[in-house]
Amino acid sequence: MSEPVWPLYEVFVRGRRGLNHVHVGSLRASDDQMALHNARDLYTRRNEGVSIWVVRSDLITASSPDEKDPFFEPAGDKIYRHPTFYSIPDDVLHI
């Protein structure tokens, strides 16, 4: 008998209102509902969360570390996107 393989799910928890959901780990479950219940039991035993997302790991599209430098390069030379790029006289306040 071949054992059924439960898919891997990634778990994201919102710690409290006002915060983003943050990735906390993964788990195995047979379906979405079980993934949610297991995530509650595994990652929020001490009130660590007010909201949980689970998503099957194979549905996530991620950037590849091999192309890391070229992939993020477009942001590298655009220093004018940062407020510190602009010099403003010291006596001009609240800016």
């Binding site: 054992e3 059924p4 439960w6 047979s30 379906d31 079980m34």
Partner: peptide, 14 residues
Amino acid sequence: AWVREAAAAYAAKH
């Protein structure tokens, strides 16, 4: 084993 199997069957059905 039977629990894992039953849960997988339930998931497949739904």
